[in-house]
C-alpha cells in the first residue's frame, strides 16, 4: 500500500466536439467527467462500465490516443496530459496496449515476426538476428512457436491472434499494459486461456495492468482493485473482492444483478423479484446531481440537488452515493472529490 502510484489520474475530463455541417465546433460530448484513478507498480486495476461510460476514452487518453480536456495523468512522475499525445520514446516504451479486436489490431500485411519485432525496431538497436531470437522467445512465452514467425495474422484463430498481440506488447518489457476489452471478442473456451496468460505474465514480470472490460465477473478474477464507471463518472472503486461481493453503489449492484445466474431456478426467482419492482423508464442521462439517479431504485430528493461525493466504504474503497452518507459521514475523501 505504500508504493508510489505508477499511474495517477486526477480529475480527468475528456470532451469530444461533434463537427457541425460547416466544420465548426458543434455540440460537446462529455466522455469523461472528472475521473480519478491510480495504479501502483505491478497492480491490476479493472475499469468496468457499459458502452458509452467513458472507460475506453480513459484508456485512449493514457495511451496518448485521445485528447485530454483537463485534468492530469501522471505516469512515473511525468505528466502525460500535457504532452498532447507526443510521448518521448523513453516513456512510450513503458506503456503498451492490447486492444479488443484481434482481427483488426494486427496489421494484415505484416508477418507475425514483423508485428512482434516492430517495437524492437522502433526502440532498440538490435540486429535482425537478435530481434528474431527475441521474437521466438516471446512467442514461446505466449504458447506459440518459432514456426509461426513467417505467417500472416489471417492464418490464426482469435485466441492465437490475441496471444500475438500480447507478445508484441511484452516485447519492450513495459511497466504497464492497457488492456482494452482483451477477451470480449473471443470464444468462451479461449477467454480463460488469455486471462490465465495475462495473469501468469503479470506474476512473472510484475507488470501493472489497466484492464478495461464490461464484464465485472471476468474482471474480478484478475484485478486487485475495480473501478466502476457510469456516464463518464467513476461511481465506485475498491478492492476487487469487496466490489464484486459487496457492491456499495446501486449501479454496481445493478450491473451484477443483470448478469444471468448459472442456476436457472435461482435466475427465475430473481426475475420474479425484479418484475415486482419494475425499474423506472427514464432518460439515462441526469443533467444535475447524481448521474445515475434516473435509473436508481433508491433515488432521493437530495440526489437531484447535488452530486454525491466519494464516500469511503467500510470494507475498502469509495463509492459516490448518498446512501453511504447516512451510514458514515465521511470527510476526507469527500473533500478531495468535490474540490
Amino acid at each position: 500500500m505504500t508504493a508510489a502510484p505508477l499511474l495517477e489520474i486526477t480529475d480527468l475530463h475528456i470532451t469530444y466536439w461533434r463537427r457541425s455541417l460547416l466544420g465548426l465546433r458543434g455540440k460537446p460530448f462529455h466522455a469523461v467527467r472528472g475521473a480519478s484513478l491510480s495504479i501502483r507498480p505491478g497492480e491490476t486495476l479493472g475499469l468496468v462500465g457499459e458502452s458509452g461510460s467513458g472507460k475506453s476514452s480513459i484508456a485512449n487518453a493514457v495511451l496518448g490516443l485521445a485528447p485530454v480536456s483537463s485534468g492530469s495523468i501522471r505516469f512515473a512522475g511525468s505528466e502525460l496530459a500535457a504532452m498532447n499525445a507526443r510521448y518521448p520514446p523513453s516513456l512510450r516504451k513503458r506503456i503498451q496496449a492490447v486492444f479488443q479486436d484481434p482481427y483488426s489490431s494486427l496489421n494484415p500485411a505484416m508477418t507475425v515476426e514483423d508485428i512482434i519485432t516492430e517495437p524492437l525496431r522502433v526502440h532498440t538497436e538490435l540486429t535482425r538476428a537478435e530481434r528474431r531470437a527475441k521474437a521466438i522467445e516471446l512467442l514461446q512465452r505466449v504458447s506459440l512457436s518459432e514456426e509461426h514467425l513467417r505467417r500472416h495474422p489471417y492464418q490464426f484463430s482469435g485466441g492465437q491472434r490475441q496471444r500475438i498481440a500480447i507478445a508484441s506488447a511484452l516485447a519492450l518489457q513495459p511497466e504497464m499494459i492497457v488492456l482494452d476489452e482483451p477477451v470480449s471478442a473471443l470464444d468462451v473456451s479461449t477467454q480463460n486461456q488469455i486471462i490465465n496468460l495475462l495473469y501468469e505474465r503479470r506474476e512473472a514480470l510484475g507488470i501493472a495492468y489497466l484492464l478495461i472490460a464490461h464484464d465485472l465477473a471476468l474482471v474480478h478474477h484478475i484485478s486487485d482493485r475495480i473501478a466502476v464507471m457510469y456516464l463518464g463518472h467513476i461511481v465506485e472503486e475498491g478492492p476487487s473482492d469487496r466490489v464484486f461481493h459487496a457492491p456499495a453503489h446501486p449501479y454496481t449492484k445493478a450491473l451484477l444483478d443483470a448478469v444471468p445466474l448459472l442456476d436457472p431456478q435461482a435466475q427465475r426467482r430473481r426475475r420474479a423479484a425484479r418484475k415486482s419492482a419494475p425499474a423506472p423508464e427514464a432518460a439515462r442521462v441526469a443533467p444535475t446531481g447524481c448521474p445515475y439517479r434516473n435509473r436508481c431504485p433508491s433515488a432521493m430528493k437530495r440526489c437531484a440537488e447535488e452530486s454525491p461525493p466519494a464516500y469511503s466504504v467500510a470494507a475498502g474503497g469509495v463509492a459516490s452515493c448518498f446512501l453511504l452518507a447516512d451510514a458514515r459521514p465521511e470527510a476526507a475523501s469527500a473533500a478531495s472529490a468535490t474540490a
Binding site: P89, K93, F99, S105, N107, E118, P119, V122, H123, S168
Partner: peptide, 28 residues
C-alpha cells in the same frame, strides 16, 4: 482508422513510419 494503426502509435512508431511501413502495404 484501423486498430492496427493505433497499435503502431502505442508502440511509438513515428508518423512517417506508420504511413510507410504500416499503412502503405495495405493499400498496395
Amino acid at each position: 482508422e484501423e486498430v492496427y494503426v493505433r497499435s503502431a502509435r502505442v508502440v511509438g512508431a513515428s508518423e512517417t513510419r506508420i504511413l510507410l511501413r504500416h499503412i502503405f502495404p495495405n493499400i498496395a
